[in-house]
Amino acid sequence: MKPVLGIAGYVLREAMSRKFILAFMVGITLVLTVVALSLRIEVVDGALAASRLFGEEIRSSIRSVDVALRPVYQAAAFLVFYGGILFGIVACSDFAPSLMSPGRIEHLLALPIQRWHLLAGTFLGVMVLALGGTLYGTTGLVLIFGVKAGYWTAGPLIAGLLACVGFAAVYAVMLTAATLVRSAALCAASGFVFLVGGIIAGYRQQMTPFFEEGFGREAFRAVTLVLPRLSALAVAAGDIAASTPLEVRSLGLLLLGVLVFGFGALAVGFWRFEGKDY
């Protein structure tokens, strides 16, 4: 396990030196600071009596705090899910291709580590990065609203974790793509295509009637059947963040499907990497 942690540390150190990622962390901090300083919430007997943003009163009817904060947390969950995955695709697209670049991969492969350690370490490093960023943002949000409104919930944190699970499947595809072709652009493209495919797969039941009966419809069904339903996971994350009943029938099965797909994609990548010459 030590070499995997060593490679993960290598990836994290590389990540911390990227201005793009540092700017993103600074951006999250700024947004949270601005919200914390500009938002004023008055709560009376557990109900939201008034709220002001930048000194302007936000007109709304008097509702209990948890109900009033539902749309905020739901929107935040969707933003973290889709925004986080999109940012992750762009920011992490060149980690694996960079580790596999000529002059670096030879040096790493000559060290006393197994090949799979390299891929597993890269995956772990990126996941730690994603998890750290997500928890930083969502914890900040929960703290701000918890302190200001006195309403504490772990919903946004769980929603953030679901976003990380979705990103894990996307990054597994990207990592596997990097073992096939060492290109950051192709790596990002594969992640983006997979994300779009995952969104479509979540709405496959609603979209199927749009296809003519016959080969087209069956092909659509077959392709979307193997893809994890990322949009369904996003909806579930929104529901959990807002503390509303889940729309999806079984979150466990949904998560299992995403994880099985992710591990499957990683297995292909590991197999390809084991037999590749550099």
């Binding site: 540390g9 290598y10 590389e14 030196s17 002059g103 670096r104």
Partner: peptide, 21 residues
Amino acid sequence: LHLPGTWTAPAFLATVTRLKG
């Protein structure tokens, strides 16, 4: 040899040492 440009030499050697177990 492709070296990480933003690292310092001691940090790079420390990583190599760690990866060598």
